[in-house]
Design a protein around this nucleic acid. Structure first.
Lengths: 158, 158
DNA sequence: TATTGTTATACTCTATAACTATA
DNA sequence: TATAGTTATAGAGTATAACAATA
């Protein structure tokens, strides 16, 4: 069961990365893109706080988004130290497409799952999430993420 | 529900990475470590095939394991082109600890889940995995991995 | 003094190509 | 000719430290 959970984690994670790469995005940049889409123009240190990355890191990620013409920097109106990062129209479209396709994925994935199963699954997952959030978990959490399943698929495609 | 699945993915993935870092390992190196633990001494190109990485990449990862004194390279007895990678005693201990702690994690996570719930969860997860393996999925798969939950935890700790 | 964003530096993972030694 | 492993080179993410400009 834990192996299944790992496998699901690995497969979903890998699928996301591949899809993002096809869109010319990385996971870190997509995270920022979605954040900017949901929250509107934001200064970099706020982005760093929201995402849990260093300010240095945000500089690099925003550079990447800017190079792809998905976001721009402009001076903050009242704080001359700060820079407001905002999505370009192209960035907004990309973020909207991401959100739309995510909903399509959900419909696809759960098409064959009955309402009762979905309910049970939701309860169980919530229970697991609660367990994972428990402070007692910190002393236990561990285990390498198994990558074989996905990587074997990748290897087969070569 | 998909959000929960994402969150579970993110939390587990982040927890794994943090735990591995505490052990002086990265995910890629832990993958190799476990592979070597389960399969015994293996040549690098076989590792590359098994993990789905390039030979070049394996060179770097084995360098890392060697620098941490977790693995060693030795000549292949019959093929003078090849190098056999094997775990040191220290590497075996590390891999064994990883496997042991993984079992402890499973016991902890599913302690509060009843047998019936576990059965249902297993069935549902397997169904999702099957959906994810469907070729039709390739056309749909997408969506940025949400990192906020974990990253907020990280940020809070600073 | 504290905060904002940058440069500087370093490490890891990944990828492609070219090269060598051997099969 | 093909395979094994390496070097060379590059880009991405992350991290810390030091710095200039501003609050």
């Amino acid at each position: 069961m834990l192996q299944q959970l790992f496998q699901l984690t690995v497969v979903m994670s890998g699928a996301m990365d591949e899809d993002l790469a096809a869109r010319g995005l990385t996971r870190a940049r997509a995270t920022l893109l979605t954040l900017l889409y949901n929250h509107g123009p934001t200064i970099q240190s706020e982005l760093a706080r929201a995402v849990g990355a260093s300010r240095r890191n945000i500089t690099g990620l925003v550079n990447g988004l800017e190079a792809s013409r998905l976001a721009t920097r402009r001076p903050h109106p009242s704080d001359r130290r700060a820079l407001l990062v905002a999505l370009t129209p192209r960035g907004s479209s990309a973020a909207a497409a991401l959100a739309r396709d995510e909903r399509a994925l959900a419909r696809y994935l759960f098409k064959t799952v009955t309402a009762a199963e979905l309910k049970a699954l939701t309860v169980s997952l919530q229970q697991l999430l609660t367990r994972l959030d428990d402070p007692a978990f910190a002393a236990l959490r561990t285990c390498a993420l198994r990558r074989w399943p996905l990587d074997r698929r990748r290897a087969a495609r070569r």
